[in-house]
């Protein structure tokens, strides 16, 4: 039994191992990775920004000791950047070499037809793997021992690109017109796709994936996360700041703080040698967790009540 198999033996062992790698996850998340491994299916991860979607893929890669291949999606991303591209420079050189040897090849040929036949016999490598520059998707398929493929923010790409992904997601293969079908080596990659839901992902894509929705964590989980990420922070302050953030999430804000912001704030408070939250301090460090001036203004008059609540939560 390999290490990976041992890790993926049960949901609990996965969860523990994630914790060892300082990624605290819910049962749902661990189940997703478990199923992804055993059913060999891609996972589409959705959720608000900053809840650890990309982090999950990264941690999985380190945990399984697999290389991580990442493809960042954006508008206008096409197959030349995602799957493969020809090495034009080398192809040019090749044609020049070909030109020089042309005389040898064609020596003694009579008539146009025979020349062309000779040329065909010569063997054409103009479009062959020699001159192919693999891009992330193809690279992931070519990895010998499998890898973790992260297709980040797939919602930012165009509709056409989504269709391009379908083949690789369902069969772990890509078709290149000039060469044929490239299939995954023995171990297909584990694929994670993330989406911030800026637009609806097509049903065809969703159908091929396991769908994992990561919501904001509850108090306990978030405490654990902070504990794992910023272990130096005193427990009392940790409870306070998590309570504060949770309260904040219930408010009507333009952008609610995510886990990454909670972690940043914890680090900030640690740096300031804070023992306990007080309104003045919160006001001064608020820009770490709220990213819109409007939001900061909006909750300004509530800060003291919120802080009070957080402090008394201990």
């Amino acid at each position: 039994m390999t290490d990976i198999q041992k890790l993926a033996e049960s949901v609990d062992s996965l969860k523990d191992s994630f914790e060892d790698h300082r990624y605290i996850c819910s049962n749902q998340i661990a189940t997703a990775v478990y199923l992804a491994y055993h059913l060999r299916k891609p996972v589409l991860i959705e959720g608000p920004p900053g809840v650890g979607k990309t982090e999950l893929a990264k941690t999985t890669a380190t945990m399984f000791a697999l290389p991580l291949i990442r493809l960042q999606c954006y508008e206008g991303l096409d197959e030349a950047k995602a799957i493969y591209e020809w090495k034009y420079g080398k192809q040019l050189l090749y044609t020049q070499v070909l030109k020089e040897t042309l005389d040898e090849v064609l020596q003694g040929a009579t008539g146009f037809r025979e020349s062309v036949n000779r040329l065909h016999e010569f063997g054409d490598i103009f479009f062959s793997e020699e001159f192919m520059e693999p891009r992330p998707l193809l690279k992931a398929l070519q990895e010998e021992d499998g890898c973790v493929l992260l297709i980040d923010e797939v919602d930012k790409s165009d509709h056409e690109f989504e269709s391009l992904l379908l083949e690789i997601l369902s069969d772990f293969q890509v078709s290149i017109p000039e060469i044929g079908t490239v299939k995954a080596r023995a171990e297909p990659p584990m694929v994670f796709l993330t989406s911030n839901n800026t637009r609806e992902i097509s049903d065809a894509l969703k159908r091929r994936c396991l769908h994992l929705y990561i919501p904001f964590p509850d108090v306990d989980l978030e405490q654990k996360i902070i504990h794992a990420r910023v272990p130096e922070i005193p427990p009392q302050l940790r409870t306070q700041l998590v309570t504060f953030i949770q309260e904040l999430r219930d408010m009507d804000l333009k952008k609610v703080p995510a886990i990454s912001e909670t972690i940043d704030w914890a680090r900030t408070l640690l740096l300031l040698h804070t023992e306990s939250l007080d309104p003045e301090l919160v006001r001064e460090t608020l820009n770490v967790i709220l990213k819109f001036q409007e939001d900061i203004d909006n909750i300004d008059h509530e800060i003291s009540t919120l802080t009070q609540k957080a402090v008394s939560a201990n």
Partner: peptide
């Protein structure tokens, strides 16, 4: 719970559906 988590990954595909 395991069953619920498992099927939640396979069947519903939007937050609403979840």
């Amino acid at each position: 719970e395991f069953l619920k988590n498992t099927l939640a990954l396979v069947l519903p595909k939007t937050a609403d559906e979840k």
